[in-house]
């Protein structure tokens, strides 16, 4: 399976005053077998990036290559990729089975009928949609539709899967269920996958490799744990982690009595903030969010609001005075 590479890619839309740079200076590699997640807020350019990889848009600058072969200007059908869209794009006028067969029937593929049959069966088994085959998409639920959409991309046996926020239109519980299935599918098919999302929990749970995209620029690329532990700047730090990282300016850090370091912003992950009851303490516990398996403590100190994450039960109550402790090595310092 090949390695895909983007070098110095840029893309802009519009002209004159309305010109918008969707992507700038993108350098990215997707290796064989890898699940690369592009994490970024709305408008960061994730969709554009995926569409460039698909061939639905072409880059203004830079190159896109697959194993040294230049694919920058190649149309989508010659790239050997498959894409799953946000709004599923399952054809309502065909049955589920017809939808699954459709990608293989365009006449230029030269795939035999037995081969088509085999591929459809494999995909159906992998996704558990066997009893939906004769149904029409209009009668299916969101989760079922999404499975059919994934099935359509599976039958192509491409060398790269592109997923554009495929779970965004499903409700929370369904998202989680499909998420682990996607992970399993990616592993079973052993194919490279590029997956775009704005949901950081999803990104953390799925990624082999994570690329943070913000306003058209790649801020950091690496393994999710690495980026979580050592974010490149405060923007990246803020994007990963729930509850979000506690961020302080220099003044705020001083006001809290934090040990100072090199940079203009300090960041502290909620799980590294220790909280103990102390009647002389300088902070107050204003609220507790019980998550079941853990608690988020909302604290007030030096006029600021901080959050701490505690596994299990803290045994504390809102209104109590508490003492906060931080180990200096857990403080992250950023220039930006």
């Amino acid at each position: 399976m090949p390695t895909w590479k983007l070098s110095g890619v840029g893309k802009a839309f519009g002209r004159g005053n309305g010109r918008v740079e969707a992507l700038r200076d993108i350098d990215l590699t997707v290796a064989d077998h890898e699940l690369l997640i592009i994490l970024g807020p709305a408008g960061s350019g994730k969709s554009t990036l995926l569409r460039l990889l698909a061939g639905l848009e072409f880059a203004d600058t830079g190159t896109l290559s697959r194993d040294e072969e230049d694919m920058t200007r190649l149309p989508p059908d010659r790239r050997d990729i498959a894409m799953v869209f946000q709004n599923f794009a399952v054809y309502p006028h065909l049955t589920v089975k017809e939808n699954l067969v459709f990608p293989l029937r365009h006449g230029r593929g030269g795939i035999s009928s037995q081969d088509i049959e085999k591929r459809v069966i494999t995909a159906v088994e992998m996704l558990g949609i066997g009893d939906l085959l004769d149904r029409h998409p209009g009668t299916l639920s969101g989760g079922e539709l999404q499975r059919v959409a994934i099935g359509r991309s599976l039958v192509r046996r491409p060398s790269l899967f592109l997923f554009d926020e495929p779970l965004i239109n499903l409700d929370a519980k369904l998202r989680e269920g499909l998420r682990s299935e996607l992970h399993r599918i990616q592993r079973e098919t052993r194919t490279a996958m590029v997956y775009a999302t704005h949901d950081q929990a999803e990104a953390m749970a799925l990624a082999d490799k994570l690329a943070i995209l913000d306003r058209g620029r790649l801020l950091q690329i690496g393994g999710p744990e690495m980026i979580y532990a050592r974010p490149a700047d405060s923007r990246v730090a803020r994007l990963l982690g729930m509850p979000p990282i506690n961020l302080f300016s220099l003044e705020q850090a001083k006001a809290l009595g934090l040990p100072l370091g090199d940079g203009s912003f300090a960041g502290l992950r909620p799980e590294f903030l220790s909280v103990v009851a102390d009647r002389e303490g300088s902070a107050t516990l204003s609220a507790i969010e019980r998550l079941g398996h853990a608690e988020v403590l909302v604290l007030e100190a030096a006029g600021q609001i901080l959050r701490a994450y505690v596994q299990g039960h803290s045994g504390l109550n809102p209104g109590e005075r508490v003492k906060l402790t931080v180990e200096p090595q857990n403080l992250l310092w950023f220039k930006r």
């Binding site: 698909a54 639905l56 059908d77 990729i81 894409m83 054809y91 990608p103 230029r108």
Partner: peptide, 13 residues
């Protein structure tokens, strides 16, 4: 939605 044709393009139509 454009995604309908785009999916077809990717398939080779």
């Amino acid at each position: 939605p454009r995604a309908f044709e785009e999916a077809a393009f990717i398939d080779g139509y």
